[in-house]
């Protein structure tokens, strides 16, 4: 089933402005897909994310979430129930001073009965591996833990789509790893549709599909391996290759016959195969 659809969407932050942050994007995301959206800062990728759950509505064109038009104000609530969103700064999205109260915030908003909220808190904290912190204070947690609580807060609304707007950008490597593991598991085990906005190339590699944004347009769209194989094109959009892929490319440029590799593991594999061949 089609989860998200953009039809020639344009969006400008200025009223009757010609400066489009998103400029004519058409795309479609199927339910259960894991999509990474790449692009430089200011390329329009965060705007794209906010257009999905009606935090912003298109200036031109149409965005639908499971067939619901985001321009239809009556549908806003229903759209947000289906498409949850986690933001960049882990400190700016918690409303309560106790973890479980914060996770309860969403279900409370949509009027879930009290007993059911308790169950949802349990489920959501379990899904992100934060059960033992149920009564903890968010300000005392690490960045990665805070973001996992934020994800739990969204999960408790039981959405079908999870949008992460640069949610790993402010985390240290350990925190990033924690968050990536959680969202991969959600995607794999629960069939959650994941839309991950990021500028970490190695995170994009873990997705099924990558979309590159440049000056408000979706300029590349395909499996990450395919996208990273088109390195010259990527460079024109001011994006760099994942480091392992860059090394691999250097080897190929010097004439060494190695297969395309994007991660350290693949690179070791490729080098090994090439050295032991013949």
């Amino acid at each position: 089933m089609e989860a998200v659809r953009f039809d020639n969407v344009k969006f400008s932050y200025e009223e009757d402005g010609q400066d489009y942050a998103v400029n004519g994007v058409s795309l479609s995301v199927e339910e259960g897909e894991f999509v990474a959206v790449l692009g430089r800062n200011g390329s329009g990728k965060s705007t794209l994310a906010k257009l999905i759950n009606a935090l912003l509505v298109p200036t031109e064109g149409k965005v639908t979430v499971f067939g619901m038009d985001t321009l239809d104000a009556k549908m806003t609530f229903e759209i947000r129930k289906n498409a949850g969103m986690v933001f960049q700064n882990p400190d700016n999205q918690t409303v309560a001073s106790v973890v479980e109260d914060d996770v309860a915030f969403g279900p409370e908003n949509i009027g879930v009965p009290r007993e059911e909220i308790g169950k949802r808190i349990e489920f959501a904290l379990d899904a992100v591996g934060m059960q033992e912190f149920r009564h903890a204070t968010p300000s005392r947690l690490s960045g990665g833990q805070k973001q996992r609580v934020a994800i739990a807060g969204v999960l408790a609304i039981l959405p079908k789509i999870m949008i992460l707007d640069e949610s790993t950008a402010m985390l240290d490597p350990r925190g990033r790893r924690e968050v990536m593991e959680v969202i991969k598991r959600l995607n794999r085990e629960r069939g959650m549709t994941v839309i991950l906005i990021t500028h970490f190339m190695d995170e994009a590699l873990q997705a099924d599909r990558a979309i590159v944004m440049h000056r408000g347009e979706a300029v590349m769209d395909g499996p990450p391996e395919e996208i990273f194989a088109r390195s010259e094109e990527l460079e024109t959009y001011n994006l760099t290759l994942p480091r392992a892929a860059a090394v691999c490319k250097a080897l190929q440029a010097a004439g060494m016959p190695v297969n395309n590799a994007f991660t350290a593991e693949e690179l070791a594999e490729a080098i090994c195969a090439s050295l032991q061949r013949g």
Partner: peptide
Amino acid sequence: DAMDARCYSGAKGRTKYK
């Protein structure tokens, strides 16, 4: 934004966990 995204719309129709 984060509160909007989590369906906040005032006291109406809201339940309370605690």
